[in-house]
């Protein structure tokens, strides 16, 4: 019983290949970028700034994975991932540079 707004012919995962590419390698890269960048601005003490991102990494990946596959529009996914990767990349570059 598909709900009214989706026709019965609409595939379960529109643009499946792109979504898969975003969900596995994309989410891994984005989660790694956030994990690395988080250590620069997480609002906790020095040691926990190292630990917190590490512990959060699995949750980040799993969340991004589900988001990439289930978001109604794949464009949003691309946008969010690009923002996460570029934003944290810039932060890291500034932190190291």
């Amino acid at each position: 019983m598909a709900t009214a707004d989706q026709g019965p012919t609409r595939p379960l995962f529109p643009r499946r290949r792109l979504r898969l590419a975003l969900a596995v390698p994309g989410a891994l890269v984005a989660a790694l970028a956030v994990t690395a960048g988080l250590s620069l601005y997480a609002p906790v003490g020095q040691v926990d700034r190292i630990l917190l991102p590490v512990i959060l990494f699995p949750f980040l990946f799993v969340g991004l994975f589900f988001f990439a596959l289930m978001a109604p529009r794949v464009r949003w996914v691309g946008l969010v991932f690009a923002l996460l990767i570029l934003g944290h990349g810039a932060l890291i570059a500034r932190g190291l540079g």
Partner: peptide
């Protein structure tokens, strides 16, 4: 193998 080295290096500015 992966996360701690990355995070430690970045968190301590290299």
């Amino acid at each position: 193998a992966l996360l701690l080295p990355i995070v430690a290096v970045i968190g301590f500015g290299g």
